[in-house]
Amino acid sequence: MKFSTKTRYGIRAMLEIASDETQSGVFQKDIAERQQISVKYLDQIIHALKAANLIVNLRGRKSGYILTRSSSEITMLDIHRAFEPGICVIDCLSSSIECDREAKCRVKGFWGELNNRILHYFKSVTLQDMLDGKIKLD
């Protein structure tokens, strides 16, 4: 399983916006520069984050972006869902796939448990956790 570039860059953009202590809004060009993301590609990411109601322009067009709610209320799953419909480690766990081996499959439970753990982890980590440095590589 691999997470999309949009999800990864979306998290980085959200961290930039969440880290603005002035609450004056963060400009897209500044996010692009600091995160080394092309403005054109970041435009697609910003559009998805706005559509998911995670960010808004502070004072209309040509102004900076702010979060729509507290960073402690926005999870990594919220950000992921702005770009993907859900987390699914293998196709047969998807509700849109009908597997002819399901009745005799011995490993679906394993993949389902892994999927649930990833989903739970994405739900349990907030932007604030990331800002506070609570998530570290062991």
Rank of each mutant, 00 (worst) to 15 (best):
L54S: 14
A52H: 08
K136F: 06
A82V: 12
C99S: 01
S72Q: 09
S96Y: 02
L67K: 01
M76S: 12
E73Q: 10
H80K: 09
D78A: 04
I74Q: 00
E84Y: 04
R117C: 15
N53E: 05
I66F: 00
R81Q: 07
R34F: 08
D43T: 15
R12T: 09
E21N: 08
M14R: 15
L119A: 02
K134C: 12
I55Q: 00
F27C: 02
L15A: 00
G64T: 09
S24Y: 01
K2H: 14
F83W: 10
M76L: 10
E84K: 03
K62L: 14
Q35K: 09
K40N: 07
N116H: 05
I79D: 06
S71E: 12
K134N: 13
E33A: 13
V39Q: 08
T7P: 00
K6F: 13
I45W: 10
K123V: 08
L127I: 13
V89T: 09
F3D: 11
K40A: 07
Q128D: 15
K29I: 10
L67T: 01
Q35L: 06
L93T: 09
I118C: 09
S96C: 02
A51L: 04
K29C: 05
A52W: 08
L77I: 01
T68L: 02
I31D: 02
Q36D: 15
S94N: 12
E21A: 14
R61W: 12
I11N: 04
T22P: 11
C99N: 03
R69C: 06
C99L: 00
I118T: 15
S124A: 10
L42N: 11
M14H: 14
L77Q: 03
N53G: 03
D132S: 13
R101K: 13
K62W: 04
K2W: 15
Q44D: 14
A32G: 08
H80C: 06
G25C: 01
R106Y: 08
S71T: 14
R61K: 03
T68D: 03
Y65M: 03
A18H: 05
R34D: 03
I97P: 02
L67D: 06
S95H: 13
V56I: 06
K136L: 12
D30I: 08
S19Q: 07
Q44L: 10
N57V: 00
C99R: 00
I118W: 13
R81L: 08
D132M: 11
G25V: 07
D129R: 05
N57A: 03
F110H: 05
G10H: 13
V26C: 03
C92E: 05
L131S: 11
D100E: 08
S72R: 04
I74R: 00
K2I: 14
K123N: 14
S63Q: 03
Y41K: 01
S19G: 11
V39K: 11
V125E: 02
K108R: 12
L137E: 11
N115P: 09
A51F: 05
M1R: 14
A52K: 07
V39S: 10
N53C: 04
I46E: 04
I118H: 08
P85N: 10
Y41N: 02
N57E: 05
L93F: 06
Q28A: 15
W111Q: 13
N57F: 02
W111S: 11
Y121E: 12
